[in-house]
Write a protein that binds this DNA or RNA. Structure first.
Lengths: 152, 152
DNA sequence: ATTTATATTTAGAATCATTCTAACTATTGA
DNA sequence: TCAATAGTTAGAATGATTCTAAATATAAAT
């Protein structure tokens, strides 16, 4: 399995993006961010906590929540809410949306087409959207064999 | 203000839809359903509880939750999750999506265009969606004057 | 009508994810 | 090196929702 070491690129990107939101770079933030980059499987805060804690045992849950918030605010990760259970976090920052398999609980990224025109909505002039969210639910081809079964 | 009495139509629709999901018609369910029809403003479970309770004081919160679930399962109402706070409920069953104003907290229904083609997604063959959800966030023209300010 | 089986309601306890608190520690800039 | 500020921590608190177990209502079958 390929586990990238913290790359200079992502470190600098992190420090820079944090700074430009008036936030400091810390060991915890760096570590949580890299934990997210290593396994791009839409973990919950709790899962991030468990993964990150193994290499940084003093890490607290509160810091994980704080850091995830910070990273979302910096535009380095996305918060994914396809279910009403715990939020999940996504380090894929390409524009995409999410498919939730109701059978196996996995979440799959779905890209937009190159030329995505306008959405077919009768949007009144008085409503000005800054964000559009599309989410799909259904089943993957074979949920029982899904490699992401209950984990993606 | 126009408050429709329980119409024969909606009562029968309710009884029938409940029955076809193997559920019984009860006074509580009827009352909660009509409470939802009377004010189509995306109330939370708690708000439904307060409104419904005034005319049926013995009503419990648990029953409101049970009933809302039942109505969602019967296809008589929709659960709306534009925020991670309490779910809201919508009795508009025309196909539509929701706009959430981050300024005033109001939720507005947005209809689809007649001919909504396909969504511009690169959907892999192995993912079969049964449901597509679009949600918008932004601001309404004048959130301060929004008639639905913090309540819609 | 009575009985029986099953569904529903209820209050309150329990749960889960998340946020808050207040003391402590680290980082930055003067 | 010090002061100011930001970040971390454990644990308590919160809020929405679900669970529990006893009481009640409904429907179906005598």
């Amino acid at each position: 399995m390929k586990k990238d070491l913290p790359s200079a690129t992502s470190e600098q990107g992190l420090a820079h993006k944090l700074a430009s939101s008036g936030m400091r770079m810390t060991a915890q933030r760096e570590h949580v961010y890299h934990t997210l980059l290593q396994q791009t499987d839409h973990p919950t805060a709790d899962e991030v906590y468990l993964r990150a804690k193994s290499a940084m045992p003093e890490l607290s849950m509160a810091t994980v929540y704080n850091t995830l918030d910070a990273l979302v605010k910096c535009g380095l990760i996305k918060q994914v809410n396809v279910e009403r259970t715990a939020s999940r976090y996504c380090s894929n920052m390409n524009e995409h949306c999410h498919f939730f398999c109701e059978e196996c609980g996995s979440i799959h990224d779905v890209d937009f087409k190159k030329d995505k025109g306008e959405l077919p909505l009768k949007l009144p002039r008085n409503l000005v959207p800054t964000q559009v969210d599309i989410s799909l639910r259904g089943r993957c081809a074979d949920p029982l064999k899904c490699p992401n079964r209950n984990r993606n």
